[in-house]
Design a protein around this nucleic acid. Sequence first.
DNA 1: TGTGACAAAATTGTTTACAATCAGTTCCAT
DNA 2: ATGGAACTGATTGTAAACAATTTTGTCACA
Lengths: 221, 221
Amino acid sequence: MATATRANAAVNATEVADQIRAAIFAGELVPNQRLVEADLAEMYGASRGHVRTALSELTVEGLVERIQNRGARVRSVPVEEAIEIVEVRSALEALCAARAATRISDAEAEELRQIGRGMESAVEAGDQAAYAQGNTDLHSTLIRLSGQKTAAATIDRLRAQAVRFQYRLFAKPGRSQQSLPEHLAIIDAVCAREPEEAARAMREHLMSVGAAIEESVRSGA
Amino acid sequence: MATATRANAAVNATEVADQIRAAIFAGELVPNQRLVEADLAEMYGASRGHVRTALSELTVEGLVERIQNRGARVRSVPVEEAIEIVEVRSALEALCAARAATRISDAEAEELRQIGRGMESAVEAGDQAAYAQGNTDLHSTLIRLSGQKTAAATIDRLRAQAVRFQYRLFAKPGRSQQSLPEHLAIIDAVCAREPEEAARAMREHLMSVGAAIEESVRSGA
DNA sequence: TGTGACAAAATTGTTTACAATCAGTTCCAT
DNA sequence: ATGGAACTGATTGTAAACAATTTTGTCACA
């Protein structure tokens, strides 16, 4: 059980929201799970009022679903919506990649290439966790280098909603072999300061992610 | 003064949030204006508790800014952020235009062309309000035709944050003459079922909007 | 065994009262 | 005059009590 200790006790609504968000992100709270106010209050050491407003905020963020007099649940994002999310991320991360390509410094380019080398050796070694970490690093680094805070915030919010599907994907055999060259193409284009090509490579990569999600659902779950 | 009547009295937090959002959108509440909980409560016929949670929700949406113990204000979006917003909208509306081009029916195409004709005659007649309405119709119709609800919701949220700059733009002399051909190009591409070209035309149009905002700030305000 | 009515429990929704904090003002000592 | 300490009014933050609603459990009766 994920009981909160005194150390991470939440005193205000924002902190409660942060903790619940983190729990959903970590998979401790799963889709459709009921979120009983009294339980959350005790779990995070906050008053019920704070829990209530935290749930309101998370509802706006699209992580929680609320029904009048029937309480809150972790929202279950349907596959169709997950694919829409990837499509939107595709457009936004392509924008970020293009901007990164126009602003990147030599030192930052080296940083990117470093991540690329890490992902290559992870695939060689068959280290799935390392590859997943490299993937996260690459995307978040590009977003940071773009300097586009609005896009960054939007992507973050959408990613949080689609966590459930991220996990599934890395478990798929042969997935890293397919996506590695896509990732390297993005890195090459950004480091070569070619915004058009960087955007194209990013779009292509995320379209392949979307297709993989669609397929993994059609077959497996 | 915008005193709410019994007719539009708000009974729960969501309704209060809707009313405040509408007031910000309509310019009745301007950037940096203080939002005193007790005043809002009386104005909308709701309890202070409901106003409080409404303000929390609007803070998550980026429309309101809150400082601990100092209350809430209508958030003032700086120009740099407004330009970021246009950039993100550009990426998303380009996506929507492309999708619309792949899905549009003959009847819907005629609907689009109708909007285009309306905008042409509005420019000829020098009817600024009609042109602004046509602009809104065109963008929202394309978003609807795309069937991309996630993109639609994201664009909506961003647009609400940037209202202040929308108004300024239409007041600019000669602005409609410049943007009319851009709008018509988008319509042509979508009706011709050419997604690539539709996306390109939309990006070009919104880039010109971004440039106009930047310039209008640099010179005027 | 199943079904409906009723009662009890659990949970959410709302209001109110109170505590804490902040901005402005007065007033005193220097 | 000036700087600052203390006071005051306005406003926000918090919690607790109460009301309303839904869900669950029980029991009688067909």
